[in-house]
Protein backbone atom coordinates (compact mmCIF):
# COMPACT_ATOMS: atom_id res chain seq x y z
CA UNK A 1 0.00 0.00 0.00
CA UNK A 2 2.73 2.40 1.04
CA UNK A 3 4.60 1.48 -2.08
CA UNK A 4 1.60 2.25 -4.20
CA UNK A 5 1.07 5.62 -2.50
CA UNK A 6 4.74 6.45 -2.89
CA UNK A 7 4.54 5.59 -6.56
CA UNK A 8 1.54 7.88 -6.88
CA UNK A 9 3.46 10.68 -5.17
CA UNK A 10 6.40 10.23 -7.48
CA UNK A 11 4.27 10.30 -10.59
CA UNK A 12 2.20 13.32 -9.54
CA UNK A 13 5.12 15.37 -8.22
CA UNK A 14 7.13 14.59 -11.34
CA UNK A 15 4.26 15.76 -13.50
CA UNK A 16 3.92 18.91 -11.41
CA UNK A 17 7.62 19.62 -11.70
CA UNK A 18 7.40 19.07 -15.43
CA UNK A 19 4.72 21.75 -15.73
CA UNK A 20 6.87 24.18 -13.79
CA UNK A 21 9.74 23.54 -16.17
CA UNK A 22 7.47 23.85 -19.19
CA UNK A 23 6.04 27.08 -17.90
CA UNK A 24 9.46 28.56 -17.37
CA UNK A 25 10.60 27.55 -20.82
CA UNK A 26 7.57 29.39 -22.13
CA UNK A 27 8.41 32.34 -19.97
CA UNK A 28 11.90 32.46 -21.39
CA UNK A 29 10.97 31.85 -25.01
CA UNK A 30 7.73 33.72 -25.59
CA UNK A 31 8.14 37.10 -27.22
CA UNK A 32 5.64 39.35 -25.45
CA UNK A 33 4.36 40.11 -21.97
CA UNK A 34 0.92 38.62 -22.37
CA UNK A 35 2.00 35.26 -23.69
CA UNK A 36 4.70 35.06 -21.04
CA UNK A 37 2.07 35.70 -18.40
CA UNK A 38 -0.11 33.05 -19.96
CA UNK A 39 2.69 30.50 -19.85
CA UNK A 40 3.39 31.31 -16.25
CA UNK A 41 -0.17 30.97 -15.00
CA UNK A 42 -1.11 27.83 -16.81
CA UNK A 43 2.00 26.04 -15.73
CA UNK A 44 1.80 27.20 -12.14
CA UNK A 45 -1.79 26.22 -11.67
CA UNK A 46 -1.19 22.74 -12.96
CA UNK A 47 2.18 22.49 -11.27
CA UNK A 48 0.98 23.40 -7.79
CA UNK A 49 -2.15 21.32 -8.21
CA UNK A 50 -0.25 18.18 -9.16
CA UNK A 51 2.29 18.64 -6.40
CA UNK A 52 -0.44 19.06 -3.80
CA UNK A 53 -2.12 15.98 -5.18
CA UNK A 54 1.14 14.08 -5.03
CA UNK A 55 1.89 15.13 -1.48
CA UNK A 56 -1.55 14.30 -0.10
CA UNK A 57 -0.68 10.62 0.49
CA UNK A 58 2.35 11.74 2.48
CA UNK A 59 0.27 13.86 4.85
CA UNK A 60 0.72 12.70 8.42
CA UNK A 61 -2.52 14.10 9.74
CA UNK A 62 -5.92 15.19 8.59
CA UNK A 63 -5.07 18.82 9.42
CA UNK A 64 -2.03 18.65 7.19
CA UNK A 65 -4.11 17.31 4.32
CA UNK A 66 -6.72 20.01 4.77
CA UNK A 67 -4.10 22.73 4.79
CA UNK A 68 -2.47 21.27 1.67
CA UNK A 69 -5.78 21.50 -0.12
CA UNK A 70 -6.28 24.98 1.29
CA UNK A 71 -2.99 26.10 -0.21
CA UNK A 72 -3.99 24.68 -3.55
CA UNK A 73 -7.38 26.45 -3.52
CA UNK A 74 -5.78 29.74 -2.58
CA UNK A 75 -3.16 29.50 -5.29
CA UNK A 76 -5.82 28.65 -7.88
CA UNK A 77 -8.14 31.48 -6.96
CA UNK A 78 -5.51 34.13 -6.41
CA UNK A 79 -3.42 33.02 -9.37
CA UNK A 80 -6.28 33.20 -11.84
CA UNK A 81 -7.40 36.66 -10.74
CA UNK A 82 -3.98 38.15 -10.32
CA UNK A 83 -2.78 37.06 -13.74
CA UNK A 84 -5.88 38.58 -15.27
CA UNK A 85 -5.20 41.82 -13.43
CA UNK A 86 -1.56 41.94 -14.41
CA UNK A 87 -2.43 41.18 -18.01
CA UNK A 88 -4.87 44.06 -18.11
CA UNK A 89 -2.44 46.36 -16.37
CA UNK A 90 0.23 45.51 -18.90
CA UNK A 91 -2.21 46.00 -21.75
CA UNK A 92 -3.40 49.34 -20.38
CA UNK A 93 0.15 50.53 -19.98
CA UNK A 94 0.98 49.56 -23.54
CA UNK A 95 -2.18 51.18 -24.80
CA UNK A 96 -1.38 54.40 -22.96
CA UNK A 97 2.02 54.56 -24.54
CA UNK A 98 1.13 53.95 -28.15
Amino acid sequence: MTLLLDAFTIVAVSAGTFFFVAGTVGLLRFPDTLSRLHALTKADNLGVGLIVLGLLPQATSLGMGIRLIGVWLLVQLAGATVSQLLARAAARRNGART
Binding site: F20, R36, L40, G79, L86, A89, A90
Partner: peptide, 13 residues
Protein backbone atom coordinates in the same frame (compact mmCIF):
# COMPACT_ATOMS: atom_id res chain seq x y z
CA UNK B 1 3.42 44.66 -14.69
CA UNK B 2 5.63 41.96 -16.06
CA UNK B 3 8.10 42.41 -13.24
CA UNK B 4 5.25 42.06 -10.82
CA UNK B 5 4.79 38.53 -12.11
CA UNK B 6 7.75 37.84 -9.87
CA UNK B 7 5.36 37.85 -6.94
CA UNK B 8 3.07 35.52 -8.84
CA UNK B 9 5.94 33.22 -9.74
CA UNK B 10 7.18 33.09 -6.16
CA UNK B 11 3.63 32.72 -4.97
CA UNK B 12 3.31 29.45 -6.83
CA UNK B 13 6.91 28.26 -7.16
Amino acid sequence: AERMMAAQLLGSG
